[in-house]
Write a protein that binds this DNA or RNA. Structure first.
Lengths: 211, 211
DNA sequence: CGAATTTTGTAACGCCCGGCACAGATATGG
DNA sequence: CCATATCTGTGCCGGGCGTTACAAAATTCG
């Protein structure tokens, strides 16, 4: 263990609490005093640990990705890309409408700063979103190469379509749309999915993924 | 004409300039000093005319709706709902990616405050968005009644789907997605559209709608 | 013209923002 | 047990925020 007085709070817990504030109020709407109160620490502790507000926010984003990792893994582990699309959109529907925790409906990567006084914030968020798009795109490209999708499908557009619908659903959820309504939208969106060249995937029961 | 010294600026022009600031920086990210500079007036004039920052913002939103009115009229004037969906999504693609004016890509109704310290702002924006959804939904319901769509289609979900894709495309545009890429997403999204019970509508050349 | 009315520019208000200095507290290592 | 290192709580800082007081300027009405 490192010398000196030990830290008096759990970093992960503090980040989770900060996440809720950013999620609800956005980057600029979240004041340092709100954050410190929610995190249960004083500002010097916060600055010593995260540098400044933007540093804290970036740490929150990494924490967010970490908490969403299991979901994305579940999505890309689907047996075919049709099932992947289904898992993704219905999973996002569940996630976005989830109000069982402390976080508001929607998605941190949109809510916390689509636009902002400091340009680096929207940029950072866009990067995190693009990362997910690339995961989907990679799987779609592989499926196309394997012949699972016809050669005239464009993996980039397909991945972008999924992300677009996902982002749209998150916006809807933030405006009060229910999980049931979002699943109906997801079902509609999946009708645009190209048929697999092999057998068509059957609709299966969806597993709900937490946070 | 009313007595007293006449106003020294054009309200519509001032609102257009304020719109750009809100669009680019969001509601909280737009400072009063930035706004007054962009509008070319001093703060007392602003406060006398619009009350306060939120009053200005609401006036900007009304101005925005007014400027988008012709587009929505064009959309709902389509001969059938399939064409309406096409006009809507491709029109939004053009609009969201448009950078010819001073406004950034995307949509004011999303950019300016998905989340915010003051809750009334996201609520107000959601109301404005819901208004557009209702216009589409009304047309879809009418089409279903006329037998243009089969009875097992749900107009509410269909309208929500269009708005969802539209919102998603605006998010994408704000992150740098090009018009061409957005049109590809729109084409994909339209594949989910239910077939009309009558003849299928042909793909027609799309008219670009300005701002 | 003079009274009334409205907008204008200058200048400032109080408040809360993000951030930090400092000293006391609590650990490790010799 | 002292030197060193790190974290914690108190208190405060300059600055920019949204907002407004005030008086001069510019119009209409009688």
């Amino acid at each position: 263990m490192r010398a000196g007085r030990p830290r008096g709070f759990c970093v992960e817990d503090a980040l989770d609490r900060a996440m809720t504030v950013f999620w609800r109020n956005g980057y600029e709407g979240a004041s340092m005093s709100e954050l410190t109160v929610a995190m249960g620490i004083n500002s010097p502790s916060l600055y010593a640990c995260f540098g400044n507000k933007e540093g804290l926010f970036r740490a929150v984003l990494e924490r967010y990705d970490e908490r969403r990792k299991s979901f994305m893994e579940y999505v890309v582990a689907a047996s075919d890309v049709g099932q992947m699309a289904e898992r993704f959109l219905h999973g996002v529907a569940d996630f976005a409408a989830d109000t069982s925790g402390k976080n508001p409906p929607g998605c941190l990567l949109l809510q916390s700063g689509l636009s902002c006084g400091e340009e680096s914030i929207p940029d950072e968020l866009a990067r995190h979103r693009a990362e997910k798009e690339m995961m989907l795109r990679g799987k779609i490209e592989a499926a196309r190469k394997k012949g699972e999708l016809s050669k005239d499908t464009d993996p980039a557009s397909l991945a972008r379509y999924l992300i677009t619908v996902s982002n749209g659903m998150c916006v809807q959820a933030a405006s009060g749309t229910t999980a049931k309504e979002l699943h109906a939208v997801a079902d509609l969106a999946l009708k645009a999915w190209p048929a697999t060249t092999a057998k068509l995937s059957k609709k299966k029961s969806r597993a709900a993924i937490s946070v």
